[in-house]
Amino acid sequence: MTAPPVPPVALTLRPEVGRLGGSNGRYERFLADLEGLYRDADAYRRALAADDGRPVYWVESSQTEDGPGGLITGISVLEPGTVGEEYAMTRGHLHAIADRSELYVGLAGRGVMILDDLGGNSQVVEINPGQAVYVPGGWVHRSANVGTERLSTLFCYAADAGQDYAIIERAGGMASLVVRDGDGWAVQPNHDHLGYTVLPA
């Protein structure tokens, strides 16, 4: 007997308040969760001492089906700010099934995607409202907010992809840093970067 089809799901994007209507998952990350993310440890400690306890970023997502045929769709919302010279950013990840790709679409704010492949190539790509970034499998990626308002992006990836968040920590951070440059942003090499090691499953 054939299983009944999965019913469609309607979602409502609300980037102005950072919400996804119809979502069934949410997580938040606070500054205290991000120790080791920024290269200037002293600046991080000063920021933590002055922190007001609000989340730095959060994700609301919708997952209806499991396995490679299903998709996880969500909204990622990153508040503006800097720690030292680096702009606020997400933890970033490589998918646990490394060949899984992901699509990001800019909804609100000004941001960049920081991307490294496992072979030593690094790119930084703008993502603003109406712009999309396709992240192929095998690329470590994170978002940074280079504006003065919330950065909201829509994302979509295979439900079985998973995330390896620790790969960036093991590498001493990503290969590129996105830092303040006057009223804009610039890319600097991260001299602490050691290269990526993918642990066996």
Rank of each mutant, 00 (worst) to 15 (best):
E102K: 09
L103I: 15
V105P: 01
G106E: 10
L107C: 05
A108P: 00
G109R: 02
G109Q: 02
G109C: 04
G109W: 01
G109Y: 02
R110V: 01
R110N: 04
G111T: 00
M113F: 08
I114S: 12
I114V: 07
L115D: 09
D116C: 03
D117T: 00
L118A: 11
G119D: 14
G119E: 12
G119W: 08
G120Y: 08
N121T: 10
Q123D: 05
Q123L: 07
Q123H: 09
V125I: 14
V125W: 07
E126R: 15
E126D: 07
N128V: 12
G130Y: 07
Q131F: 01
Q131L: 01
V133L: 12
V133S: 05
Y134L: 11
Y134A: 09
P136H: 04
P136M: 10
G137T: 04
G138R: 04
G138F: 14
V140C: 13
S143R: 04
A144S: 11
A144H: 05
A144M: 13
N145R: 09
V146G: 00
T148L: 11
E149L: 03
E149C: 06
R150N: 02
R150P: 02
S152W: 08
T153V: 15
L154N: 08
L154E: 02
F155Y: 15
C156W: 12
C156H: 06
Y157N: 03
A159W: 14
A159T: 02
D160T: 11
D160Q: 15
A161F: 05
G162T: 13
G162R: 05
D164F: 03
A166I: 13
A166C: 10
I167A: 00
I167F: 08
I168K: 04
R170K: 12
R170I: 06
A171M: 11
